[in-house]
Structure formats: structure tokens, C-alpha cells
Design a protein around this nucleic acid. Sequence first.
DNA 1: TCATCACTTAACATTTTCATCATATCACCG
DNA 2: CGGTGATATGATGAAAATGTTAAGTGATGA
Lengths: 123, 123
Amino acid sequence: MSDFSLDNRPLYEVKANLFKGLAHPVRIRTLERLAGGGDVSVSELLADTGLEPSHLSQHLSVLRRHNLVVADRRGSQVFYRLAYPQVADLLSVARILLVEVLQTTQRHLETSEADVSSTAPRS
Amino acid sequence: MSDFSLDNRPLYEVKANLFKGLAHPVRIRTLERLAGGGDVSVSELLADTGLEPSHLSQHLSVLRRHNLVVADRRGSQVFYRLAYPQVADLLSVARILLVEVLQTTQRHLETSEADVSSTAPRS
DNA sequence: TCATCACTTAACATTTTCATCATATCACCG
DNA sequence: CGGTGATATGATGAAAATGTTAAGTGATGA
């Protein structure tokens, strides 16, 4: 409860905390599913991912604590959605960066391989 | 070395990994300083933050491993800069989201306070 | 060459996450 | 009510990240 005051703290701490909330594959998967739009029930998320209910539930709890998603119960099911559309923006900007990184890394790999095959690199 | 292949892994894992690289106040501070543009020497970063050299250096190492920054040595000093301008984009989109979250949380707090003062919420 | 400044890496104890399993809650149906 | 499906919470051990201190490398300049 002390790590989520969001206020009275330097912005860089709050921001680091936000990224901490995003720093897990299950949570990214979940957010990306929710970024598709509309509400998604826990059942659907479970079916999609094949995770153990309690495992997913704990990650959903993390996402809630970070104010990234909101949930509402309808009957016996619970539906989740993004708390803010900006969450989807963040994910897509991350993807753009990642594509760039991957492409560059790819190029570097190719270059290294070339250097390996011909030990004396020409030009 | 196994956690940074960047390739041959589902995108959501790579993405989660990216966020992990951002998930620390010192690293956010550093990136934000570098996002200002230009190269910044470790000395300057140390002066700005007042951190222990080894502490900062370890975080710089994390940022390098995540391909978020690049360093080059000039004489006895080492200069860092963002590896991609998109890193700055990511930070600024995060800020936008955060402002939204903070504003909303603020509103909720005010509402709660009002509810406290009058125990029976009207409407 | 060796002393020093600038920075990095290594080693290790501490703290924080994570995964797993057991238990609890909540809503509905019989 | 009691049972069952859907989800959440709690507890525990393992794994990973963090902070600290010490030792290492690389360039510079006496």
C-alpha cells in the first residue's frame, strides 16, 4: 500500500513503478488482449492463455493496483478492460521501439556473421 | 545472456523484458536526462543524481543490455546517449498516461473525501 | 612507470517478484 | 440451505533484482 501513493513522489519513481506494473509477460498478454477493445471476462483470458486461474488472478490484481485495468462483476463472471486508452498507446509505442531494436539487432547479427565467414572483412 | 536474445521469442515476452529494463527510478532518471538530447558523460550523470559511481554504472549496464542506450569512450570519459529516439517517445507517452491516472486518482480522492464528510452519498 | 581519475565488474547479503498450492469469497441453482 | 462454477486471496519456497563494498580496467599525466 506504500508503493502506490502516486502522489508526493518524484515523477521518475512513479514512472518506474508504472513500468514495473508492465514488466511481466502475462500482464502484457492480458493488456494486449484488452487493448483489442471491449470487455473481456477472466474465463476468456484463461481460455486464451491456458494459465492457472490463481496465477492469472494475481497478475490481474497487480494490473488493478497499478490502475491499468478496471474490473466489474456481472453475475458470476468478472469482466476487465483498460482503465485508460492511453495504456494501449503505451503498448503500441513500445512495439514500435521494439521493431526498431529488432531490425537493428538483426542487421548487426548479419554483419557479424559475414565477418565470421570471411575473416578479413572487405571494405 | 539467455534473456536478451530478442528473437525467437513471443513478442509479449520481449515486450515485458523491455519494460523490465525501464522499471527502476535510476534508469528512468538517466533515460530522461538522455532524452534531453546529446551525449551525457557518466560524470555529469553522477553530478546530477549524487549516486555512487558503481550504483549508476550497474544501471547503465542494464540499459545497455536492453539496447536502450549506447556508450562511447572519449579519452577517459564515457558518454551515453539513447540508442533510439523512440525511447524518448516511450517515456513521453508514459508521462501522458501517468498524468491521466494522477488526475483521475485525484478526482476520486476528492470524491471520497466528500463522501466521508457526508456519510450518506446522495444520488 | 606508477599514481590517479573515470568508470566498470565482481561478490554477496537483502529485498522483491514469481509460481504453486491451498483456502476463501461470491453468485447462482437445485 | 448446500453444492458448484468463477474468481480472488493467502502462504510458501524458489528465482530474480537491488544495494553495497571491494577489486579491476583504461587513459592520462607527473
